[in-house]
Nucleic acid binder design. Structure first.
Lengths: 331, 331
DNA sequence: TTGTAAGCGTTATCAC
DNA sequence: GTGATAACGCTTACAA
């Protein structure tokens, strides 16, 4: 063993007085004589031997590594998702290579290229590109966006969640509903939140209107709102916002205009964003089952044998009061 | 080239009619005949060749990969740090392997072991262990915690930030200050925030008291606070909280007891935590220069030639009003 | 069972 | 400048 560099299996073999192959077997759980087993393990410990996964990966073709491609870690949903996926991978003895893609699909493609070069066993991505798999036939699973018939997608039950939100508002006494949504450039699963909301309103025969913003900044929604508030008396008493950020902004606008929340207008958001690490929500909301989504994505990316039964995994959301509905405990 | 698997340099060499060595040179920017250069690139494009970094890493000993070990991604400071470090690494053509360590040092050691096995070129860690480098002589840089004389540490100027907070409160008219801090099990750089606060108070000759909670949950601080509020009139008019979460909780307690913030009591936190992706702060606060911290950590882990001039890099923080001080714009 | 040896895809050291 | 060829540390037939 050349000093200065790490010991290899060869060194361990020499130290233990066995052959290289035997050492390899020990570290792979392949049965080997009790004596040899022990000798090898002792020798390895004595030398401070560390398995070189690059050598193993090169030989075996499996690297036990999965790439996660995200647009950001600032949004709480994304950071939680990243953490849960990381934990889920660790439970399966996998490592996570994290890529933050800049807006624009060149960056996403670039992340994909690097992930492939790094021989990842699979990729989980929140993507806005049409199809990330340029030439590479990597195993791919997306979150919240269906990009191809052979790429499994994991999301929360956006449609069902939108429905539940509407039903909840109605149950809480709202008579005139409003649904607001910001659509991103590429259409994605979360767009169904507002569809589910509309469906439930119609089914219940309740008066409702909807405002969908395509400009991505939500300005349309804010001005739409201010327009309907001009006389100080809103012509609605319940709002479903397709995410908590939007709900927060909508709530601020309402309060600025002197509208009492939840007394005059009740608001339900979507995501389940918490303040700090605590339990405090920003608003009453539909909570996404992030851990389950992470587990599902990881299972799919590791085990999908091509014959996945369902291409879109929709996981159930749950409602929780968070101060912007009348069922919230009053401070 | 065996079909089904990815083309290798050998395949490219054959396709281009050159030798393997020449192909390697092309992909390493080593000068090669103009004609050959082009032939190789065309052949590679035609075959959809992808560099195998596992083979390169095995041979060269450098993997262009850095591990980041964090206790969580839920705290906004950590998620922002992770994102900035990821971006910083990308700018330097590096990849990031992310590890979330469970509380307790076995998990941290485990992350370290896996990072070493994966042949990372270095590790950046937010750690509570005494010394992560068990046997391995990995290049290590810590965040917010000095663990050994030869391990560089990056942090914000915690002491200076605490000082500035006190000075700011005094400047804003506070006469009787209070400093509160939650110390984690292992002493770390952020503990200096409260020291800087005390120093500035003493220097200014201002009346002040301090409450440090060692139980990690902040219960001590809350009850300390409630005790001093029992009669409804607080005997302090300015509080420095060593992080924004604490500032938020303290603010809630004060308001619950009918104390007006910032009219009666002004509060300054530390971190610069934002609501959603927006600009809204939870409180007036000392903002940490996360991007600069990330860049510094990455530079150190990649370039530290052992002869680092400063072992502790303290980056300057900045104050920003966020509603819990009188200099905040009133809504 | 255990040892031997041929690669895995690259880089790097040689002669040519 | 270019092309063979020997590693890098490991897995895995296959031989003993």
């Amino acid at each position: 063993m050349k000093k200065g560099s790490m010991p290899t299996m060869k060194d361990v073999a020499q130290e233990a007085g066995v052959s290289l192959g035997t050492v390899s077997k020990v570290f792979n759980g392949i049965p080997v004589g009790k004596m040899y087993q022990q000798q090898v393990q002792e020798a390895a410990a004595r030398l401070g031997y560390r398995l070189n996964r690059y050598a193993r990966g090169l030989k075996s073709g499996k690297t036990l590594t999965v790439a996660l491609i995200l647009p950001s870690l600032q949004t709480q949903f994304f950071s939680t998702l990243a953490q849960k996926i990381c934990e889920s991978l660790r439970e399966r003895e996998r490592q996570m290579l994290l890529f933050i893609a800049q807006p624009g699909m060149e960056s996403e493609q670039d992340c994909m290229r690097r992930a492939v070069e790094h021989q990842v066993d699979g990729v989980i991505a929140v993507t806005y590109s049409d199809d990330l798999r340029k030439n590479s036939q990597v195993r791919l699973v997306t979150i919240d966006r269906l990009i191809a018939p052979d790429v499994p997608c994991v999301s929360s039950d956006n449609y069902g969640g939108g429905q539940m939100a509407a039903q909840k508002l109605i149950e809480l006494g709202c008579k005139r509903l409003l649904g607001v949504h910001i659509a991103c450039a590429a259409s994605s699963e979360p767009d169904k939140r507002i569809d589910g909301f509309c469906f439930a309103c119609r089914s219940a025969g309740v008066e409702f209107s909807v405002c969908v913003d395509n400009q991505q900044q939500g300005e349309q929604i804010i001005s739409f709102l201010e327009q309907r508030l001009r006389d100080g008396t809103p012509d609605f008493d319940g709002i479903f916002c397709s995410n908590d950020d939007l709900a927060y902004r909508v709530g601020s606008v309402l309060r600025e205009h002197g509208v009492k929340v939840p007394e005059q207008v009740q608001i339900i958001g979507y995501d389940g964003v918490k303040k700090f690490e605590g339990r405090d929500l920003f608003c009453s909301t539909m909570i996404q089952p992030v851990k389950e989504m992470a587990d599902t994505a990881v299972d799919l990316v590791l085990n999908s044998d091509g014959t996945s039964p369902s291409i879109l995994a929709c996981l159930p959301v749950s409602y929780m009061a968070g101060g912007t509905t009348k069922d919230s405990v009053q401070p």
